[in-house]
Structure formats: C-alpha cells, structure tokens
C-alpha cells in the first residue's frame, strides 16, 4: 500500500520536460556512440530504429499506461494488474535500478571530473585520451563516484527534486543546443567524411545477432523502460494527460539527442585519427578534442560538461527516487534513511566498477543487456495479459488526442514480448557476454 500521496504533474510542459529529463542523459551522449562504434557502426542504426518503433514508443505507452492505471510503481502496478506474484516480480526493477546506479554514477563521476577539468583547462590540453585516462579506472575515480552518489542521496533525501527539475529546464535545452553546435562543427572538420560514412553507410556484414541484442538493450535503457522509472512516471500522470503523443515526443526526442551526439562524435573520431571501437571512453576522448578545435572551445567545454552533468544527475535522482519509494513502501522507513540505504548499496556495488574495467563491463551487461529487457517483458505481460489488452488500450487512449487502434492490442500483447524473447534467446544461443 502506498503510504504517501502520489503527486501529479501540474502542467504538461512540466511533465514533458521531466520525461525528457528522465529519458535524456548519459545513455544518449555516452552510451549510444560507444555502442554504435563498437557494434557495427551504421549497421547498428538499423535495429536501433526498428526497435525504437516496435519496442521503444510502444513500450512507453505500455509502461506509462500500466503506471497510470495502477497508480503506483512496479510492485503495486504488477500486483494490481493481476500478474502472478506481482509484488515479488516488482522487486526486479528495483534491483536493476541499483545496479544501474552503480555504473551510471561512475560515468557521472567522470563527467564531474571533466567539468572541473574544463574550468581549469586541464581537460582540453594534453594528448588525446590523457585526461580521460587520468580518471577512468584510476583510484581517484572512486572519489568522483562517491561524490555523485552522495549528491544524489542528498537531493532525494531532502526532497529537493524541484530545484533539480527547474535547473533541468535550462540544462536540457542547453545540452541539446550544444550538441547541435558541436555536430555542425564536427562535420566540417577535415577527415569528417570518413566518420560520416562509418556512422551512416551500413556494412550489413556487421549486422550480427550480438548487434541486435545490444541495440535492443540500448533502446530499452535509453528510454528508461524496464518496468521501473517509466511505470513510476506513469503513476504521476493524470487521466487527462496524452500518453500517445507524449510517448512519441519523448521517444523521438531521446533519439534526436542520441543521433546528434553521433554526428558530433563520429566525424571528430575520424578527423582526429581515433578508433570508433574505443569502447566506453569514446565520448570522453573525442569530445574534448572536438572542443579544443572549436573557437571558444574552453567556454563551450564548460557549458557542455555542466549540462551533461545535470542531465546525468537528473537521471540518477530519478532512478534513486524509484528505489527509495520502493524501500519506503515495503519497509516503511523514513525517506532520509531509505535514500541513504539505497545510496550505500549503490556505493558498495559501484566502487569496484570505479577501478575495474571488467567488473564495470559485467555490471552494465547484467543490468542493461539481460535484466532490463526481462523486466520490460514482465511489465508488458502484466498490462496486456493480466490486466487485459482491451482494458489496457482503453486506458492508454484516455486523454489522448490520437486514438490507438485495435492494432495496438496484438502488437503490445504478442509482438512486443515476442521480439524481446527472440532477441534474448538469440543472445543466449550465441553465448553473448556483452
């Protein structure tokens, strides 16, 4: 039983910005280019766009619909919809969220170090990758990681999300403008064409089962799907809110930022003679070089890493809020202690990731490649099978200016789960470890 009131979004703009804030973060700027670079280049975009339509947008309508109709987070939503042992399955999104916090806050820690580095200028000098190498998987990464966890805990514990959301209203558009400016600059660099070819002209021989699996996990992760945050967001929606149009806005808006990040990064990668398969450090190695090449790069740099940091922080706050709510609902703890407890667990899980690249990779793979699609699958089964496809569609259509036709029912009920299952099975059969 929910022991605290569910606030509802006061304005549509507030809701849109909050959803974009949840959906836009490090996954667009840091993870998307990494995945594209390491998993097929332009070929990755094919399953990515397919999954955006088949899984992503539909998934948002499912999870918001589930959250709104059941008026609660994962446990209440799964159980309320009638999913067997829903209260227990609803714990899965919380576990995933804590794992995500553990690695995500490490990236946020890198961003914070880079923010300081752009202010001092240290991040924009030296050999390519030197500044990144000075923090990533070095002992000092633990410090930056802990700072971001503590900051997130403070914000959630003292309920100052409002302040964060208000700054997000400035930071998100700023990040968006900056990425666009950087993209325009990047494509004009000498050597950029090779990067554009890599990013846009698919080599179909690279489209392996593994690429499909990673693309699925990326599209689910970047949209905050997986039975957790988006279900909670849905529970804050009013019946007069337009789920369908909002889902399109958030889903494509999220894609816009990721695509623009690719336009900023890949031409620069090739212009500066770096490898697109560099892995998780790709954005942090290429973006400083790009900024250095821009007139006024120091200023752009500060603005970029400041807005990136805020984008990441709004996401960690959203994630931690979801888990904290779960702790409060189940254990009836005080908010402060619940947040501190969640932060402590995330810290314990994340510190090894600060210094060990293998562990870092494993935690990302377990949470985003394997567990997240499963949790998304359960949310869909709960809404479409347990609650009922017809009722689900009727609910989603409430408040919507576009009526989803009957096609949505078999799509959400059969195709959506089937796609997830098939891709996961392919992953298992191919023995993919990410």
């Amino acid at each position: 039983m929910e022991i605290h009131e569910r606030p509802k979004w006061r304005t549509k703009t507030g809701f849109i910005l909050a959803s974009m804030g949840c959906a836009v973060g490090l996954a667009n700027i840091w993870m998307f280019p990494w995945r594209v670079g390491q998993y097929g280049g332009a070929a990755f975009l094919i399953p990515y766009f397919i999954f955006l339509l088949v899984i992503g947008i539909i998934g948002i309508t499912i999870e918001w619909g589930l959250g709104r109709s059941q008026d609660g987070g994962p446990q209440r939503a799964f159980a309320g919809a009638g999913f067997p042992a829903g209260k227990w399955w609803g714990i899965l999104p919380y576990i995933i969220a804590v794992l995500v916090l553990a690695f995500y806050s490490n990236i946020l820690g890198w961003s914070l170090k880079f923010l300081v580095g752009t202010i001092t200028g240290a991040a924009l000098t030296g050999e390519p990758g030197q500044f990144f190498g000075s923090v990533a998987f070095q002992p000092e990464a633990i410090m930056w990681f802990c700072i971001t966890i503590v900051l997130t805990v403070l914000i959630v514990a003292f309920g100052v999300q409002k302040g964060i959301e208000m700054s997000a209203k400035v930071m998100m558009p700023l990040l968006f403008v900056l990425i666009t400016v950087m993209a325009i600059w990047s494509v004009t660099l000498p050597g950029a064409l090779e990067g554009l070819k890599f990013y846009l002209i698919p080599d179909l021989s690279k489209l392996t089962g593994e690429v499909w699996l990673i693309a699925l996990s990326q599209s689910i992760f970047t949209l905050s799907l997986g039975g957790g945050a988006m279900v909670v967001y849905g529970s804050y929606m009013r019946k007069s809110d337009d789920i369908t149009i909002s889902a399109i806005s958030v889903g494509f808006g999220n894609t816009v930022i990721a695509i623009m990040a690719g336009f900023a990064i890949f031409p620069a990668i090739f212009a500066f003679g770096l490898s697109p398969e560099a892995g998780p450090g790709l954005a942090f190695v290429s973006i400083p070089l790009l900024l250095q090449s821009m007139p006024g790069g120091a200023v752009w740099g500060v603005m970029f890493f400041l807005s990136l940091f805020f984008a990441g922080l709004t996401s960690t706050v959203a994630i931690m809020e979801v888990v904290t709510d779960g702790v409060i609902d189940n254990l009836h703890w005080d908010r402060k202690w619940a947040a501190i407890c969640v932060g402590a667990i995330a810290m314990a899980l994340g510190i090894p990731a600060s210094i060990n690249p293998g562990y870092f990779d494993t935690i990302i793979t377990i949470s985003t490649v394997w567990m997240l699609p499963i949790a998304g699958l359960i949310a869909a089964l709960a809404f479409l099978w347990s609650y009922g496809a017809k009722k689900a569609r009727e609910h989603v259509n409430m408040g919507s200016s576009i009526t989803l036709g009957k096609w949505w029912e078999p799509w959400a009920k059969y195709i959506y789960p089937l796609v997830i299952i098939v891709v996961l099975v392919i992953g298992i059969v191919l023995g993919i470890s990410g």
């Binding site: 849109i16 002209i201 399109i248 808006g253 336009f263």
Partner: peptide, 30 residues
C-alpha cells in the same frame, strides 16, 4: 558523398520530424 548526404537527411528527418510534430501538438493542447 551523395549517399552520405541522402542518408543523413533521411535519418535526421525520421528522428526530428515526429519529435517536432508530437511536441508541437502537445504544446498546443495545453
């Protein structure tokens, strides 16, 4: 070069188009 431009335009249109359409529609209905 031409292929790059064509694909770039398509990718940008496919991502920006629905985003702008949906966001404008949402703002108008407020």
């Amino acid at each position: 070069m031409a292929a790059v431009i064509v694909i770039a335009v398509v990718v940008l249109a496919v991502s920006w188009g629905p985003f702008i359409w949906a966001t404008v529609k949402l703002m108008k209905s407020e």
